[in-house]
Simulated assay, not measured.
Amino acid sequence: MPASPRLSVLDLVPVRSGQTSAEAVTASVALARAADRLGYTRYWFAEHHNMRAVASTTPPVLAAAIAARTDRIRVGSGGVMLPNHAPLVVAEQFAALEAIAPGRIDLGIGRAPGSDPVITQLLRISGPTADVDRFPDHIADIISLLDPDGATLRLTNGREYPITATPAAAGSPTVWLLGSSDYSAQLAAQLGLPYVFANHFSGEGLERALALYRDGYTPSERHPVPETFLTVNAVVAPTAAEAQERALPQLRMFARMRMNQPLRELETVEEALTAPADGLAEELIAPIRSRWVIGDADAAAARVRDLAERHGVDEVMVVPVAGAYATEAVDASPGRVQTLELLAGALHPPVE
């Protein structure tokens, strides 16, 4: 049997019907504490905006809350959508996180908007931050600003102006480049940065992106060899039947996204099971389901091992997308906690 990969978590802080944002965040804090207890490697928050089913709008804020409530797990963003923010602000936020939890911070950076065109315009109204063409330069700026020695800006009069993201830094976060295209893979290779393909969202082009990244990698001082891992949506339960039921609310939301339908809070399992059948939605759900890890502990563990071996990675970041039954507490996410517990137990059973 191949060695089991390390496990990590990507959290979008899902919001279900009848649940407030505060209750959704409380549930995610408990989930992160479970991941810390179970030995997961890292816990990242995604950046999404104006989505009724997603409360992860501000990864740095959520990461700070989790860093303060966990002991060993790495925390960070998966990712910060850089064109929405000034590079100096991002550098300052993550330098502060590094001061809160030294040696435990990851800064994952992407260039997608994380929302619809209207919200994108509101986020980028300040102008210079919206210069997507300067994305590589802005990444380089952030890396320089995060360095304990800081960066130097040359003014028009020729004078040099020193800038640091924080005074007296003792270390800096690990910067990861995220994406779902050939562009992101090639840029990460060119810059000598760790790279993650958004397999949980796209699923198309994974093999090509990893090949481009690995084949074109330029070693850097901090990252002499390419580093990458795999992301995947996962629902694990005591039985395959329960896993399929708990997967249905998120599967239906993905189908609505593909159909360009209005998004709302996640359905409960009961709401998803009793909703009217939609032929087109069912056609869309089937291929989505085939790319997810859905099943009991043994089946899910086997699938995760296979994915890791097939793509040559030693870490898999799961997005625990298990839905909730109507009877479950609104300030908890038992299905998501169960996913992490069962998967960790099957892949990394405790040594007697």
Rank of each mutant, 00 (worst) to 15 (best):
H223I: 13
A234S: 12
G203C: 10
P136D: 10
M253V: 10
H138V: 10
R222N: 05
L251I: 05
Q250C: 08
P136F: 11
L153C: 10
P162H: 09
E221H: 13
D149Y: 02
L155S: 00
T228P: 01
G150V: 00
D215C: 03
A165L: 06
D141G: 01
V225I: 12
T166R: 14
R159L: 05
A209G: 03
R134H: 03
I163K: 00
T239Y: 10
V235C: 09
D137G: 09
T174N: 09
L155V: 01
R252A: 04
E271M: 14
P194W: 12
L155G: 06
A211H: 13
G192F: 06
D141S: 01
P226T: 15
R246P: 06
T228N: 07
A255V: 02
P249K: 12
V232Y: 00
A240V: 14
T152G: 02
L153P: 02
A243H: 05
R222I: 08
G171C: 12
L266C: 00
G158P: 10
T274A: 11
V232N: 07
L193H: 05
P194F: 11
R159I: 01
P173R: 09
A237P: 08
F197Y: 14
G192D: 02
N157K: 05
N260K: 15
S172N: 09
A140G: 07
M253E: 08
A237N: 03
Y183T: 01
L145K: 00
E271K: 10
P136V: 13
E245R: 15
L178V: 10
D149W: 03
P262V: 14
G216H: 04
E207W: 03
R134K: 11
A277S: 08
E270C: 05
I163T: 00
F197M: 03
A277Y: 09
R222Y: 02
T166G: 14
Y195M: 02
T274W: 08
D147H: 06
F135P: 05
L153K: 07
V232W: 09
A189P: 06
